[in-house]
Nucleic acid binder design. Structure first.
Lengths: 231, 231
DNA sequence: TGTCCATCTTGATATATGTCAAAATACGCC
DNA sequence: GGCGTATTTTGACATATATCAAGATGGACA
């Protein structure tokens, strides 16, 4: 049976599409069974040949691009239900690298078979396009953040984004567990780790949040939103 | 005859795909004829309903996202042969706005018909995916630039990018005509216009470039590349 | 051709964030 | 449970870039 992974793709690939039972089965048939990655394991590296997209089933990954001189830029933190690897379709080689931030499970989606299937199933085709477009919109949001927001605004936006995605996974809007270090947050937000740390402390001093190592409680969502929207 | 726009999409949509004559004709049939936009005209605005992608035939556009408080972030400068509007597939509403920077011609590509056709023509399907993926890669490059490069590195990267695209259009690698103001460059690069101006002056003082208003000559491509790669 | 307005340059100064350094805290491992 | 290492916090200081303010330049248009 190839239904090993039947719930891994549900969130992202099936549920929103409204496929018939038969179509569902064809999609499931395409999906290779889950693979487990330990914290620090690479899902792929820059320059790796592209064959498959991956749907995160559990755990979390970060993606990053590396500069020649060693500088790195974290380009995303990925959570369950999200699709990873879209950057590589363009050249058939990965242009960034993805690594697990904790023990994680992933489903492999061979891309050429996904393309075949989406030729037969228009709603799947449309959904695939939407996933790619959503990634473009997400990236543009980060460009806005990096290009025109100040340190504390960026951090507020980051916390609210985590909160939102927590909610999307049926978890608390206010209790966050950071899976990443201050250094990684800084890289993602274009800040130094000390700046991230100071901003968190400042937020705490203002009663906006409660920080305890990597668990953060958002005490005043409304004010955080004001910071991001129109500060 | 619906071949009004037969060369507009060639660069981006047909040439690289290797379609048969018949497939070509079907693609051409789909394309609405060219429309002209004057400098400052909107191709679309944030919130507009999405129906079509657009292929730029001549001229140039900028895209930008607006913040609630009026801040803007320029997210791209688009040249002939490039496809605009991919952000809107995701929600069926545009999440940014696009406006002409000079008098420009554009071909409309109704998206649902493009999807239909790409179900029939696998190489077109693949090409559409590549275009979307390329946009994701481009955006990640800008994230790297905004998140981890300094002002002069950003500007060098910007100039080299323009140079490259000039070459792709059969134009000079070293003689650039900027279509955008220092203010717009600054917005794109996450800098203030004064910083852009100073950096240009500094480059000129160093013998890297020759600036005269909006025409720039790149005098030392190699050193510009070093700045971006491993400064 | 000359005037006007937008754009651009340049200088002086302010400020946000980076850098360097040390101490404090948290966490994995024995 | 305690030790050692990695991470985080905090402080003092440095610096890149922003801000404010004149002028200078260039292009559109009469």
């Amino acid at each position: 049976m190839k239904v090993a992974c039947s719930d891994c793709h549900l969130r992202e690939l099936c549920l929103p599409v409204g496929l018939s039972d038969g179509e569902m089965q064809r999609l499931e048939a395409l999906i290779n069974s889950k693979r487990v990655y330990a914290a620090g394991d690479y899902l792929y590296r820059t320059g790796d040949r592209f064959r498959s997209l991956h749907a995160i089933h559990s755990g979390s990954f970060k993606t990053r691009v590396l500069h020649d001189d060693g500088r790195e830029q974290v380009t995303g933190f990925l959570m369950p239900g999200e699709i990873i690897g879209l950057d590589a379709i363009c050249t058939e080689f990965h242009t960034c690298e993805a690594l697990a931030m904790e023990s994680s499970e992933v489903c492999e989606l061979p891309f050429s078979r996904l393309e075949e299937l989406s030729r037969d199933i228009p709603s799947l085709q449309r959904h695939l396009h939407k996933i790619m477009s959503r990634e473009i919109v997400r990236d543009q949001g980060i460009m806005l953040l990096l290009g025109s927001m100040r340190a504390e605004e960026r951090l507020a936006a980051f916390l609210l984004n985590l909160s939102q995605r927590n909610v999307a996974h049926g978890m608390s809007a206010t209790r966050l567990t950071l899976r990443m270090s201050r250094l990684e947050i800084g890289s993602y937000l274009g800040l130094k780790l000390e700046t991230v740390s100071r901003a968190l402390s400042h937020f705490q001093g203002d009663g906006l949040i409660q920080v305890k190592a990597r668990s953060v409680e958002l005490l005043d969502l409304a004010r955080l939103r004001v910071m991001v929207g129109k500060s």
